[in-house]
């Protein structure tokens, strides 16, 4: 048991239809990219869930720290000129 390997962890992203974004589906264990792709196909697309798959070694994904959320996702309320509603349109002007 001591030497048992469960292979590397890969994250799986699937595009459900061409043109749509790739969405995280879950993960698989695999020793190389070929096996990761095959496992992702078998585990996450048995019912036509996708038209394209990305597999990424989990160790190469960096995630933001939830403790930094306040700072990181501060909406910068002092920069209201980023929103279209900040601008005054002349009476009678139509939107594009």
């Amino acid at each position: 048991m001591a030497t048992d390997t469960q292979l590397d962890l890969w994250e799986v992203f699937i595009q459900s239809k061409s043109g749509l974004p790739y969405i995280h589906s879950g993960s698989v264990h695999a020793s190389d990219v070929k096996m990761a792709m095959q496992n992702a196909r078998d585990i996450y697309t048995r019912r036509g869930e996708g038209t394209s798959i990305w597999v990424v070694p989990a160790k190469h994904i960096s995630a933001s720290n939830p403790d930094d959320n306040d700072m990181l996702f501060d909406p910068s309320n002092d920069k209201i000129y980023r929103h279209p509603t900040f601008y005054v349109m002349p009476e009678g002007a139509k939107n594009i």
């Binding site: 048992d4 390997t5 469960q6 292979l7 590397d8 695999a30 020793s31 190389d32 096996m35």
Partner: peptide
């Protein structure tokens, strides 16, 4: 099944 996982690992190192 242990040998399958070991072989996959060995192949990864070799490639």
């Amino acid at each position: 099944g242990a040998w399958v996982r070991e072989a996959a690992d060995a192949y990864k190192i070799k490639t």
